[in-house]
Design a protein around this nucleic acid. Structure first.
Lengths: 287, 287
DNA sequence: AGAGGTTACGGGCAGCGTAAGGATC
DNA sequence: GATCCTTACGCTGCCCGTAACCTCT
């Protein structure tokens, strides 16, 4: 039994397949297969049913699972608590929504890099639903998104919310929402749905809502007079665009955007929580 | 970081030296040294001070220690709880005092072997003080001796006590302890000391006490009329010798011999506890 | 046929043991 | 000088990746 075998065993069970585990571990697929066979051999136990295409844990495999988790958890703890932060080398894959990418991320990266100069941070910017999916299939270690994620496997940490404000082209009169195009977040986002239901209820079905998955595009559209926008305030974009757009009061604003730092419980004792702490500090002092 | 490295790290810290660890692990001494260096390299941390001849844990090494223990403990648990007992292969080194060797051991060995056919049991018979020492320096995994051992590292399980009886040569009249040679356990044993202090107190300093580290020799001596003996009853020897020796009442008998199954806490989750369970069953049903 | 997993095989490298080389008491 | 640990070095064997093979849907 080796730690590599245990790590591989866990990857295969969590990702549900040899092939996927191989991708995740950056090794060839036969290598994964061999590690499993070697582990089974060293324990003298069959861990997987391979009958019906794919792999299913046997009873023995299920027995091994909790111990395997303890082992890898302990290894993670050693990496974060014994190894000095400045020579811990690892890859940390963080996914953020655009709002975060343009606010805390700029402060986070150098701060985190000072603490862990040998950790490579890979940042993915995407909408919350996609981040959630990537988190669940382990393509991400940590996601900062519109949360919380309700899944027993996920641990959520609340970060300060973002207020949403109405933006219009600078110098134009206050528009009427009922007759103006409204540009806002992506269709699958909570704010979009909140705005949509509010507006169809209050203003009838004639409203024109333009979702965009890019905040900067959204601001651009507002600045060029396509319509008004409902976007987070306290954003770098707000600062950058303040010559071309301005806030106005539309009588109603969507609820603030709740941000959570979310990660899988299985990573609770690893580097991920350090990154969360770092975000919490930044967000706390910035608010 | 590998499990071999962690195991080696623990052996070195527990046994207090590279050389001793090498012996314990059945590998060459440079191999141990290399594993330590490799571990230090992979963690990016110096674990040992090598300055003043020998090795001392550094602050970092002390930090690693509890995690290393969790790792090896978990590995032990996997070996006992996931691996089916009939293909667990291991070596279990048991030390017993002669009294045990001649009573429960005969029943223990085949029973344990049926449960764990691939475990090699190495039995050492010695007096309690030596067994204690061998347990502490890890030459034994389990010791059945006159316990308990009061050491925070040791876990003791009580087994049924052995009553002590006075034996004399068959057919001779009841002797007077004050004028007869008394043959009993080894000098460093608790019964010897109890008898010695009782007899010098009650009968003056003229008593003749003959300690022996061999029960059968002791019985032999009694049978040939050298003196009387204070030995455990319910012993195979008692049965075997019943034509030549017999019990008599000397008006006082030493306290029963307390037997404990003792092992190091660090092995609590391994095979050792299974062996203890097995002994407990045997001793329980035999009494 | 395609997706999933295992077997076969050659090559590189990690890790062992033997032997020699410092340190420290 | 004795004891203890590290460095040097040749060698074995494990484990990886490529490629071919099997087996269910």
């Amino acid at each position: 039994m080796t730690l590599d075998q245990i790590r591989t065993f866990l990857a295969v069970t969590r990702l549900g397949g040899v092939r996927r585990a191989a991708t995740h571990l950056n090794i060839s697929q036969p290598a994964v297969s061999n590690r499993l066979l070697a582990l089974e051999d060293s324990l003298g136990v069959i861990l997987f049913d391979r009958d019906r295409g794919g792999v299913d844990l046997t009873q023995e495999g299920i027995k091994l699972l909790p111990y395997a988790e303890i082992l890898m958890q302990t290894v993670d703890q050693i990496r974060t608590e014994v190894v000095p932060s400045d020579n811990l080398s690892a890859i940390l894959r963080i996914g953020v929504i655009e709002t975060i990418a343009e606010s805390w991320l700029a402060e986070f990266l150098p701060k985190f890099y000072r603490l862990y100069p040998n950790v490579t941070v890979e940042v993915t910017v995407d909408i919350s639903v996609n981040l959630r999916e990537q988190l669940m299939d382990r393509s991400l270690d940590l996601a900062l998104l519109m949360g919380p994620l309700s899944d027993y496997k996920v641990e959520n940490h609340n970060l300060p919310a973002f207020d949403v404000g109405w933006f219009k082209k600078k110098g134009t009169p206050d528009p009427d929402l009922a007759t103006t195009a409204v540009i806002t977040f992506h269709k699958q986002s909570r704010p979009f749905q909140e705005i949509q239901s509010f507006m169809t209820e209050k203003l009838g079905s004639g409203v024109r809502l333009f979702p965009t998955s890019s905040l900067s595009t959204g601001f651009e559209m507002v600045a060029s007079g396509v319509g008004v926008g409902a976007f987070p305030r306290r954003n770098i974009l707000e600062e950058r665009m303040k010559d071309r757009v301005e806030i106005f009061d539309a009588g109603w604003t969507p609820s603030p955007i709740n941000i959570t730092a979310s990660y899988l419980r299985e990573n609770k004792h690893g580097l991920v929580t350090r990154a969360v702490d770092c975000f919490l500090e930044i967000a706390g002092s910035a608010s």
